[in-house]
Design a protein around this nucleic acid. Sequence first.
RNA 1: GGGCGCUUAGCUCAGCUGGUCAGAGCAGCUGCCUUACAAGCAGCAGGUCGUCGGUUCGAGUCCGGCAGCGCCCACCA
Length: 892
Amino acid sequence: MTAPAPGASPDGATIGRSATVPGRGTGPGDPGAGRGVGVPERPGLEGLEAKWSARWEADGTYRFDRRAERADVFSIDTPPPTVSGTLHIGHVFSYTHTDTVARFQRMRGKAVFYPMGWDDNGLPTERRVQNFYGVRCDPSLPFDPGFEPPARPPTPALAVSRPNFVQLCERLTAADEQAFETLWRTLGLSVDWGLAYATIDEGARRASQRSFVRALARGEVYQQTAPTLWDVDFATAVSQAELEDRERPGAYHRLRFEGHGGGPAVEIETTRPELLPACVALVAHPDDGRYAPLFGASVRTPLFGTVVPVLAHPQADPEKGSGIAMVCTFGDTTDVVWWRELGLPTRTVVGRDGRLEPVAWGSPGWETEDPAGAAAHYAGLVGRTVRQAQAAIVEQLEAAGALVGPPRPITHPVKFYERGERPLEIVSSRQWFVRTLDLRERLLERGEELRWHPPYMAQRYRSWVEGLSADWNISRQRFFGVPIPLWYPLGTDGAIDFGHPLSPAEDRLPVDPSTDVPDGYRPEQRNEPGGFVGDPDVMDTWATSSLTPQIAGRWGHDEDLFARVFPMDVRPQAHDIIRTWLFTTVVRAEQEAGSLPWSDVAISGWVLDPDRKKMSKSKGNVVTPLPLLERHGADSVRYWAASGRPGTDTAVDEGQMKVGRRLAIKVLNASKFALGRLEGGGVPPLSAVSEPLDRHMLRRLATVVEEATGALEAYEYTTALERAETFFWVFCDDYLELVKSRAYGGPDAGRPGGPTLSARAALAAALSVQLRLLAPFLPYVTEEAWSWWQEGSVHRATWPGPADLALAPGADPAEDVLDVAAEVLGAVRRAKTAAKRSMRARVARLEVLDRSGRLDALRAARADLVDAGGIQELVLTETEGGGDVQVVLAVD
RNA sequence: GGGCGCUUAGCUCAGCUGGUCAGAGCAGCUGCCUUACAAGCAGCAGGUCGUCGGUUCGAGUCCGGCAGCGCCCACCA
């Protein structure tokens, strides 16, 4: 695939600018097909990031070739980081993993589609904007085109219109995104910045709304007024995927319900006595002998005198509490199940602000045997938070003698919105849902089809899908998000007709129903009887993020591009968002395309702080990457990151970064040495390699190439790095030492077929291959060293393969010459160290006793060994048993 | 309650389909200005591979029980 450099003469002793394709380096078996060799006097790490990242940008080194067919494309569904402040070291960790694979695939000849997205849509941004500018969104206010936020955040927060609020969100995230990009460029991510997107930008809004409108047409989304998980602080619905259990103290309160119509009294236990006014039934297990006689009977609630039935349901647990539960609308999700399955009435007391609402006792739905008493008791609760109401009602119950014994403190799991601070309530509201329950079997199959790295992560997806209990609620009562692209007709009486939503034509997208007008209506008909009203809600942030492959691939906007990249090759992501991002992306691709969104998913672990604790803002142990990059350099930080295997949590380890730095410096120095031997003489071809030591070294390298390639294909970047690195140190410590003298050469250094030329050719081939092997991990130093003697970027060079190391046929000793010679050299070093002598000390006599095969190998490297060890007399003695090396140092 | 992962030298971790597998790096210690590298180089020392049992001629390596740590899922009154 690579034409020989035009200036190259047959023996390779050439210098001349090659005419290779721009950005494309050498081909196999052609280690130096570029240009002259020029090595700096004192190579160093400083400044490499600035120098090369600018160069890569200028040269378009990582630009996606959109002419490539799908089979030649490697497409990455890059996670869009949340733009709500600063990146932490965990981002650097996982994005480096992806980058190593991206670089590998690029060098293998793939057109790599590697976009970057910014997740600026959603609650984290709203929150940051509120704090940063001291504002709050009031959707009832009109847009103020000239609005500028105060210089300092005012208290209380300034109310602004929704469009003004969104503008502030956009302004702040733009600044954040710039800072993020700078960091990514410093780290050396090989992203094509021309493909950047944001989850709130026009393309993302278009894709989200298009997907919604189409799903609506296919019946895959529906609206429903139903009990909904509700965060009272954020005043929005949340989905099952955003739930999190937290252990909280609580107490069992034992309440006595008097029998109604002559039945016996019943005692129940509840952790939420404040919901007593919302009680609609008692429930026990059908097989529970204690309560079976009561099924069908009724009891009276204490304080409120509501008559409620005693019913049977298998989900009641006889072991729990008194074995019979109070069903309220709604205390928890079990209440919802009972309410639905037993067809119970609704009596809501907790409002959307988390406070108890007024109730008309005695009116329909609120029947009671004692309206005045109920109202009197309830008056003490209205307007209070659930917490305050609980304290109040417990006092009332106690006074009424309905509380049996003192409350029994317990610790129990309570459901929270993952970003929330107070327990979730369940309120009835109108929301849009995506049908996921119907799709469960299909989604499980897709999970099996997907290739997981590491494989055991598939279990997490499986558990989640199997445990789905509700469809996906995608509407949020928030502001900075993609609007639900619908309007509703208003009846002549002004009532909203939710049953006939007005959906925009696809070519109108994206729309904002709060400013745009549905087809067939005029602007002045907004909110007027007989007119229309816009849906006030936005979509869940995951409803947009679940479309990242479609957004990045410009689905619906550039179908040619989309066809070349979708379904994508890999989704890299962390394990904590399998149930959200991964799951919802699979749902969307299944519904829209009937396929997986990607063939592989690479799950990265988390970064733990140096004490192996999970990093979190509240603990204050979050490590920011910039100081680390400045202190150690990008390659060093990348080296540390690449040492974390897929799926494995890894601690921040500056020691490991120092090791990386050492490796990076070593790459420069070893390159300097090897290329120093080529200066003036040019790069000899591989065919000049004749010495057995050189041949064995290259053979071993060929094995390393094979292993590293296989590992990277399987996303095992850590293994690839480890193999390349281990070989590289042997290459430096043993091979270079052994071959050094010969490589410098004597009078006949340039003789074709001679040992010096063999060494130089082997050095060139080995260096060329190793720089390419290490390029995905250490992009800066490898590029720097590559630039000393090669044309084009190492990152566009061809990934090394067998052709790079194909040796002419020849008879070599059976034993690995490098191994045996290095072992003997080691013994010599040991002797010198033990005698506290310099490595330069001469060896008067070296006797090696060993099997004949190993001695044969040694003979093949005899001159190298003698030079490297400073050996005056070398005696090789054949023995039957184990080998031995005797070293007699010369006297100074 | 169900499930997953981890448990190998002081630290961080490799050890694939069972038989040079008891390893690497860091830290520690001892030395060395060696013409690629003193932000280097050479070398030394360090572990009954969590625990109990099983399979096998042979087990960090396979199977089962247990323990500790971390995590996922769960209808948690």
